[in-house]
Amino acid sequence: MVSAGIAAPILTYLIRPLFGGPPRKAWVRIGKLEELPLNVPQRLAAARRVVEGWETVDSQVTAWVARLPDKIYVFDPHCTHLGCAYRWNQQSKEFVCPCHSGVFSLTGKVLSGPPPRPLDTYAYEVRDGFLYVDPVPIRHPAGGSS
């Protein structure tokens, strides 16, 4: 009984973070749409204050935004393989991940390397010419594009 009395609160304390509910929608203004060049993805960042544990920290929301003539892609800036930050290679016109050599197309499709699925995206909205994103990654099925 004593063991259970000790173990129960300890387990709850340890395991509670595992069951955090889905994060609430938090739109962040990340940039002006008309300033984005066509077909050349830009890495945009915006400041945001979030509560993490016991402290409120100034964190940054970053996203890769590709503005195509008919569509806008807002990508989560982490490789879908193991979460490294990828970058855009303007010469080869591909997103390249420096960790395990994952390569993605402009639309987020896996071109080569170990990533299991296309780039994750963020939900976005355009209001008054500004791009707002909700920085919660949305996964897409393997094989397709984002």
Partner: peptide
């Protein structure tokens, strides 16, 4: 990890 693609990750 570089040698194991996608689903075999």
């Amino acid at each position: 990890l570089k040698y194991f693609p996608g689903s075999l990750e």
